[in-house]
Design a protein around this nucleic acid. Structure first.
Length: 453
RNA sequence: GAGGUUGUAGCUCAGUCGGUUAGAGCGCUAGAUUGUGGUUCUAGAGGUCGCGGGUUCGAGACCCGUCUCCCUCCCCA
């Protein structure tokens, strides 16, 4: 016999947590639908051939792999066992848990491209799994809430995502947030201009840490990773960019020789313009040239949302990918999407005390039951109360009234109906308000009226 | 994947230098109150000290291993 325990990095969600999580999920779902996104669900399990190689080398390590069923050993050779863990894995595991929702979505689009109306807008709210080391705000199983549009290059999509975020977060009570925006093309252009083509990935990883570790350490890291010192000198404009009123103008001058950088800048200007046209008041958007994001498939705009005043990672991220379906043999389908992290949003809301109180209770009225007669009488009026729209339950056992009231108190049920011989004879039911302790004798119709008002 | 840290009752935590029967608060159960919750009072139940091994006359405490929690790096939501 062993004590039960949770798998590392996983959690249970009890009733009050679920009420809060559902509040978040419902808010997100409602807004996704209002922008014309349609629901999609895909399996928790995917073939590893679908998942592997999509998240970089480190991503493959973070995939949970599922051991083949049956006698997987008999299908391997002794050479397999002597080789690397990686090559053995491919022999004994062919399925894995999904790592995000974007890749399964790409697979779905490819498999259904004949019948989908393009551009296709879908939202997807499901758990994903990562074999990461758990920490505050990081779990091995967590929910993502994705919304993506595929099949159009229109920058309207980028602007719509910004609008969507500006609808969702205030509705959750998170007023103080920033949508950081950058464009991968600008980063590519920078690598070009400083003479570090092809080292763009390294550049991104280092620059991304600027706000965390500071300018000098970023430079040190670049040196360590083999950057030429004149390349690093040429990077200087990046470090002062946030002090400028018009960063786009500065960038245009600096990166004028790079066609791709200019394209990225033009795209962002267009997005800003669309946001302005859409009439969004006080947009909380910020161009951040140091925003890079790790996922290698982004090619255009990239987003990240930070909640201010809370020490927690980003609560949302996303971007445009020009060729996601390319790895599945269908090039040329571009898309742009956003992913919200419910678990982190939950932590932010908890820390800032933003949960509305009314979301925890579900039962409004409990009928007591202290003998057979009361039980039968209660049963006869139970369904009328429920049909009237009141969440009602009857205490299932005939035990002492004290115990029943104690239960109602713990479950924070606001009303309790006391039924005894006196009430049954007169038809006047005793309704007790658990908050005030006040009791009244009422007819059934009056009881319903009292509770519903 | 690298480094650090934690684990004692349902929960939060004491437990001295290695020494007799491992404690507190909260919670739980029962009673004071056989038709009335929250407050109060009284009594009670509840422990393989994460797990496995070792040192010792003796281990909750010391040593090794392992799992877990939390943190830093890496990376990310």
């Amino acid at each position: 016999m062993s004590k039960p325990s949770l798998a590392r990095g996983t959690r249970d969600f009890g009733p009050e947590q679920m009420a809060r999580r559902n509040f978040i999920l419902d808010t997100i779902r409602r807004n996704y639908q209002r922008y014309g996104f349609q629901p999609l669900e895909t399996p928790a399990l995917e073939n590893l051939s679908v998942l592997m190689g999509k998240y970089g080398d480190e991503g493959d390590q973070l995939l949970f792999k599922i051991l083949n069923s049956g006698d997987f050993k008999s299908k391997t050779t002794s050479e397999d066992w002597e080789g690397t863990a990686k090559s053995l894995t491919t022999k004994i595991s062919e399925k894995g848990l999904r790592y995000d929702l974007t890749v399964p979505f790409a697979r779905y689009v490819v498999m259904n491209r004949g019948s989908l109306a393009m551009p296709f807008k879908r939202y997807q709210i499901q758990p994903v799994w990562r074999a990461d080391r758990p920490q505050r705000g990081r779990y091995r199983e967590f929910y993502q809430c994705d919304a993506d549009v595929v099949g159009t290059d229109s920058l309207l999509c980028e602007a719509e995502i910004v609008g969507l975020l500006h609808d969702i977060f205030p509705q959750l009570g998170i007023e103080d947030f920033v949508v950081k925006i950058n464009n991968r093309k600008i980063l590519t252009g920078i690598a070009e201009v400083v003479g570090a083509q092809g080292q763009e990935g390294t550049l991104c990883v280092a620059i991304d840490k600027l706000d965390k570790i500071g300018k000098e350490k970023v430079k040190a890291e670049l040196v360590e990773r083999g950057f030429q010192s004149n390349s690093i000198e040429l990077l200087e404009p990046i470090f002062d960019l946030d002090k400028n009123k018009d960063p786009f103008a500065v960038l245009k001058e600096w990166l004028g020789s790079s066609e791709i950088a200019m394209e990225g800048i033009r795209e962002l200007e267009q997005v800003w313009h669309f946001i302005q046209l859409s009439g969004l008041e006080n947009p909380r958007i910020e161009f951040d040239v140091t925003l890079a994001r790790g996922l290698s498939y982004y090619t255009g705009a990239i987003f990240e949302v930070k909640a201010q005043g809370v020490q927690i990672g980003s609560i949302s991220g996303g971007g445009r990918y020009d060729n996601l379906t390319g790895t599945f043999g269908v090039p040329g389908i571009s898309g742009v999407g956003i992913s919200l992290g419910v678990d982190r949003i939950y932590d932010v809301m908890e820390e800032l005390g933003l949960f509305p109180e009314s979301h925890t209770t579900s039962t409004q009225l409990m009928l007591t039951n202290f003998d057979r007669e009361a039980f039968e009488y209660g049963l006869s009026i139970l369904s009328s109360l429920r049909r009237a729209g009141i969440n009602t339950e009857m205490y299932p056992d005939s035990v002492k009234l004290k115990k029943q009231l104690d239960f109602a108190d713990k479950k924070q049920i606001p009303y309790v109906m006391l039924i005894g011989s006196e009430e049954i004879q007169s038809g006047m039911l005793t309704l007790k308000n658990m908050k005030t302790g006040e009791q009244k004798k009422l007819e059934l119709a009056q009881v319903i009226e009292t509770i519903l008002q």
